[in-house]
Structure formats: C-alpha cells, structure tokens
Design a protein around this nucleic acid. Sequence first.
DNA 1: GATGCCATGTAATAAGTTACATGATTGA
DNA 2: TCAATCATGTAACTTATTACATGGCATC
Lengths: 184, 184
Amino acid sequence: MRLLKYAILGLINRGAMTGYDLMKVFNRELVNFWYAKHSQIYPELKKLTEEGLITYETVLQGEKMEKKLYSITEAGKKDFLNWLKKQNVLEPTPKDIFRLKAYFLESLSKEEILEQFEYQLKQRQEKLKKLETTMLDHPFAESVANVFSPEYGDYIVLKGAIMRERTHVEWLLECIREIESSEA
Amino acid sequence: MRLLKYAILGLINRGAMTGYDLMKVFNRELVNFWYAKHSQIYPELKKLTEEGLITYETVLQGEKMEKKLYSITEAGKKDFLNWLKKQNVLEPTPKDIFRLKAYFLESLSKEEILEQFEYQLKQRQEKLKKLETTMLDHPFAESVANVFSPEYGDYIVLKGAIMRERTHVEWLLECIREIESSEA
DNA sequence: GATGCCATGTAATAAGTTACATGATTGA
DNA sequence: TCAATCATGTAACTTATTACATGGCATC
C-alpha cells in the first residue's frame, strides 16, 4: 500500500521540507493518526527521489551543515491526488494491547484488574487533557468556517482524536464502576 | 514485545486449541483488538513449543487427518500471568488511513471530500450494526453480573468496540454536516 | 564547554502480509 | 462430485523498530 509514501507526499505537497522537518511533523502534529521514525523516513525519501515523485535542493544551514529540502514534482502531485481520491475499504480495527489484556482479565484478582484499569485511565485522561489543550491553543475558531483551508484538516482530525479519547475514558470509567461494585 | 506470543498463550490458557482454532478465534472473536494470519500463527506455535511454554498432542480428525492440540505448560502460565499483571505505558495511537486522508482534504473538491466521508460513514455504520447485533445475540445479560467469568472480558471489549464505533460515526456525521453547509 | 536540538544516514532485527503448497473432511 | 471448510506448513517480501554512527549549530 506504500502508505508512508503518501503521508510524505501529502506533507511535501503542502510545502518544501527536509527529512528532519517531516520527522517532527509526523511525531508532533500527525502523531494521532500517523508517525514514522527518521530511520524509515530517510530511506523512503531516497526511494521517492529515485522514482521521480520528489526532488531536492541542497541548502546550507550555517557554515557547513547541509540539508536537503524536498519538493514534490508534477508526477508526485498526480500520484498523491490519485491516492487521495481513491475510495478505501475499511482497514481492520487496529490492535490494542490493553483491550487484549481486558479480554483475559478473568485470570487476575479484583485488585489486579482495578490496578490495570486505574493506570490506563490515568494515562488516557492525561492524553485527553493534552489534546484539549492543543485545541484551545490553536486559533481554529476563525478558520473552522473555511472548510477548504489546510487548517480545516488539522481541525477535524484533532476533534476526532478528542472525541475518541473521551469515549475511551468513558469506557474505562464504566468498566471500573462495574468491577468495583462486583463481589470478589 | 512478543505480543502475538501472549495473545496465543492467553487463548490456549482458556483451553486446548489447534492452530486453526486460534486463527478462527483471532479473526472472529478478537478481531476488534487483535488478529493474525495462519502464516504468522503456525511459526509462533512452533517457537512457543521449543521454548517450553506450550505442548501439543497429535489428535486424529477422521481417518487420516492429524491435528495438533496445544495446551499451556506451567512455565507458559507463569509467563502469561506475569505479562498480564505488568503495567504498560500507553501505546502510540494507531495509524489511521482515513484520518490521514482527512488531514489532506484541502486538496480535494467539496464533492470529492463528501464522497470520501459518505463512503467511510456507510462502512462504519455497517460495522456498528454488526457489533450491536453481536451484542444482542450474546447471552451476556445474565453473566454481566459476574465480573470474574471469561464472558465478562468478552463483554467489556465488545461494549468498548461499540462505544468506539458510535463515536466514530458521530464524528463523521459532524464533519459531513460542516462540509455540506460550507460554501464551495 | 556542555547541553539540547538540528541533520542525515545505515544495519540488524522483528512483525506482519501475500503467495505458494498440499491434502482431508463434511455436507449438499 | 462439488464446494466449503478444516488443517498445516514455508518462502518471499514489506513494514517498522532499535541500535549504531556521525557531525554541526545555538545558547547558556
């Protein structure tokens, strides 16, 4: 499926970037639905260059340090848009370690089960708080109206992440309530 | 992390199974949080046997067909329970192709965006319906009370899957409403 | 001069998918 | 007898992670 390819093409399509820039965007802005380590990004950039979908110019940062600033080519743009328009069937539901553990919870004692759920809840609540802070920090309020700006994409995926996380917290709270009120 | 290892150990811990049985359970019951192809399961079973965490006895099915019925060993049980009790830090949010596309939606026309969202919505609604049917078909109502039965694990992960899917549908509907009411 | 970030790469390994390969059993 | 399902495996490949490896820049 070459999904990293399209994630990279999509980002470079928004504007020229270096591999390091891509890494930062993946692991800061896109982290709620995509990410990649630099060790995966650099080889992919090399491959995309060989395929003629992107090009780079070498730019000097300071005295000596060279960086490669990548831009998308016409071929790359075409390939990306083609992928973007294509309708995909649903991916399989992603794997989830905590749900896997929850499935096996009959092997644990009431205390152990609650420890697992409380710890998960704490982490999920922290994550939700961060997402909500991000939403408040962004100047989305004005741009929400304009669906056809890049900010609208940023906005809806963030909104989706918050809704998802809230539901996750709600689920954990319901489970905890049920487990706590059960007889050991 | 050897997660497939623990998924397999957990299932065999519930009762003796063949590789084929595991495949069916993964891709029917557990599919909302774990899955594996037979080409991954069989080598893992071999490895776990070599590690002494499971054993098998060969059973005849019909006249000639042999199948391997795997059971967990004491070492396997210990290893599994150890993993189950361990507290994990949150995994990174799973990758999501549709959200990736949604992030880039500014490159599409209003019609193309709506096509993507409507198709996604249709599929998500179908999935939700299936999950809700599964919930109704299960005789959970009586066993919910007993938190320490295997059925309780089945129940909460299914409940979680339904909540997650409902939120997903809700998000898609909100996005569609917003996009539709925008000026092209 | 030390720390943190910028910047780019490769190698080894692990995890997962697709395709290849074979054959038995069950029920219509 | 045909189709679906049961049953088990391997090979090639793709995707992703961890570790190895190097060096510049900016600021305190």
